[in-house]
């Protein structure tokens, strides 16, 4: 083969096609919203991950707690202190860690389950009925009571394995993940049903491509767009669900801050100190918005039909 190429008269173009991922990145860079979103998310992550190490630690005594109560913003406490005299800025940083982690991990779990179920039920006719009925079953379950039961049943067991905080984290992300995959599954199934009748899938089948590769190479890349949208929305709902759980006393322990928890704690003082609701709310919204824009940019960048426009 090399010989035939070498013996041809005119110089033959043999260079390797350039990597698709560079095209994707080039297109991603042109999406302003995505770049802004990425910057904001990077800042938020830096804020919650690096922040607590840089910021001064606090060890409160009972007297200090009393004296520091409900301070307005100052240089020592940029966001003031809460009703127990704790630095609200520090609590925002620590809370963000958990919230962002819960959002991302729960989203990953839910998208993974949703895509798998949707793909299987769309692609294999025999699995369609059972899997979709399972989806309906999960959709019809009352979510919050189910979560409560799950937390009740498994919290202690998991706490024994992972320790109280990590145990709660694992429990919460799994609980949120397994109760929020249904919309993604339905979207993916619909897309797959349409895609598998397309001629390029038939063409691949006429090559004798096994189902596994048929799915991974031809079907999955073409359902990326709707999955991406579902994923970014899932992050938001995961953060909110976590806060609801914490609010009900079934999430993380009360002294363990999360953005959702700060939000709910702030609710009772909303009249006097509205900023205690605004800051965590703003942080949640910013995270969701940033992820949303990144997802948008990524979706456009991954679609060759849009790329280069």
């Amino acid at each position: 083969m090399r010989d035939t190429a070498g013996t041809q008269a005119k110089p033959v173009r043999m260079e390797r096609p350039r990597s698709q991922w560079r095209d994707v990145w080039d297109q991603f860079k042109t999406h302003k919203g995505a770049l802004v979103g990425m910057t904001v998310l990077a800042l938020l992550v830096a804020f919650v991950v690096i922040g607590p190490f840089v910021w001064h630690e606090e060890k409160l005594t009972t007297t200090q707690t009393y004296l520091n109560k409900n301070k307005p913003p100052s240089l020592t406490y940029p966001l003031g202190t809460d009703h127990l005299g704790r630095d609200f800025f520090l609590r925002m940083m620590e809370g963000g860690r958990v919230s962002i982690a819960v959002g991302l991990v729960a989203m990953t779990i839910s998208i993974f389950i949703g895509t798998t179920v949707g793909m299987l039920s769309g692609f294999f006719k025999r699995l369609d009925g059972p899997l979709m009925r399972l989806t309906d079953l999960f959709l019809s379950l009352p979510l919050l009571p189910l979560l409560l039961v799950m937390v009740m049943l498994f919290r202690d067991a998991l706490a024994r394995i992972f320790g109280p905080e990590l145990g709660t984290f694992v429990l919460i992300v799994i609980a949120i993940g397994v109760t929020s995959w249904m919309p993604a599954a339905r979207i993916v199934r619909g897309e797959v049903l349409a895609l598998k009748e397309r001629e390029f899938v038939l063409a691949a089948r006429s090559l004798g491509t096994p189902n596994r590769r048929l799915i991974l190479r031809h079907v999955l890349p073409n359902v990326v767009s709707p999955v991406m949208v579902a994923a970014t929305l899932d992050i938001a709902s995961a953060i909110i669900t976590e806060s609801a759980l914490s609010f009900l006393g079934l999430g993380f322990p009360p002294d363990f801050p999360t953005w959702g928890r700060l939000l709910f704690d702030g609710l009772s003082y909303m009249q006097q100190y509205p900023e205690r609701v605004i800051w965590p709310g703003l942080a949640i919204s910013l995270t969701v918005l940033a992820v949303n824009y990144i997802g948008d940019g990524l979706r456009d960048a991954l679609d060759p039909r849009i790329r280069g426009r």
């Binding site: 698709q20 001629e199 390029f200 038939l202 063409a203 006429s206 004798g208 096994p210 190479r217």
Partner: peptide, 24 residues
């Protein structure tokens, strides 16, 4: 069948639909 596939191939009707839009 998979072993026999290379000997027989198909050209499809709709050139738009028979090519995966996400592959070069």
């Amino acid at each position: 069948l998979r072993r026999l596939r290379p000997a027989m191939q198909m050209v499809f009707q709709d050139p738009q639909a028979s090519l995966n839009p996400r592959m070069t």
